[in-house]
Amino acid sequence: MKAKLAKAKPFLGLVLIVIVVSILSPNFFTKDNLLTVLRQTSINAIIAAGMTFVILTAGIDLSVGSILGFSGAICAYLLTNGTNVILAFLAAVLVGAVFGLFNGVVITKGKVQPFIATLATMILLRGATMVFTNGKPIAVKGESATNTLRYIARGEILGIPVAVVMMIVVFIICYHILHNTKYGRHVYAVGGNEQAALLSGVNTDRVKMLAYMISGILASIAGIIVLSRLSSAQPTAGDGYELDAIAAVVLGGTSLAGGQGMILGTVVGAMIIGILNNALNLLDVQSYYQMIVRAIVILIAVLLDRKDKNK
């Protein structure tokens, strides 16, 4: 019972925030606004889903923002040069997979701390994006390309924005992997006790490499959504997104020490951050103050969680 309550805690936090914000701002709890919140949240939530795998293995991935930017730029370049839309998207995802795997190899085979390895990739890919774009946005041209991007950005499936549907699909797949497959079990085992997992016959290096690869792939998918919303690749796209993703995972109750947490908590964590941003805008809070409020909310949430875990 107590354990269940602890698991429900991020969700209760979300409900509380929804109630408070609804009271403070009558414009909040409307269908349009809620869909806007979901649409805005989808990018962070998809990145955070990948981050959840990495954090469950007791790692961290700082490179997601840069992977997002770089794969978006590659995708925009290919689209502008008339590449088939599907191929361009696949290329973007491949970029994410390759650099995610690169992180994984450096961390497992090179025995480099995840923080440092992914920090290097983060800087490397931001630099590569700048070089590739010459520091200027790449605007996507071509009818089929712009139509597809517009569909991702503004289209709906059964009244739900496409980006939100993508987010839901991502979370269903991630939930399945983490809770119903051998790989998912191995992720928890490696994060909970890597040595014990190794001695139980788990290929711990492979588990970690795959986790970083999943993180890279999801960052590049988020990159496609970001690209679609602006119809152009910004060289600074995704800058700082890694921190929002980490915050979403931690708010969702996943332990940075690894081995404990759940993917559904991550959705909730991303929602809390999204709603907070939306509410602060609705309430006309100056953007400088917004940062301070966000910081305070994150700190309180995590402190409450910690206090609980120490008991």
Partner: peptide, 18 residues
């Protein structure tokens, strides 16, 4: 504790891990 079991996982998942 440090090599035999994943203490954060449940009994069932530990038994079947290998």
């Amino acid at each position: 504790k440090s090599e035999g079991l994943v203490l954060t996982m449940d009994v069932k998942s530990n038994i079947t891990l290998s």
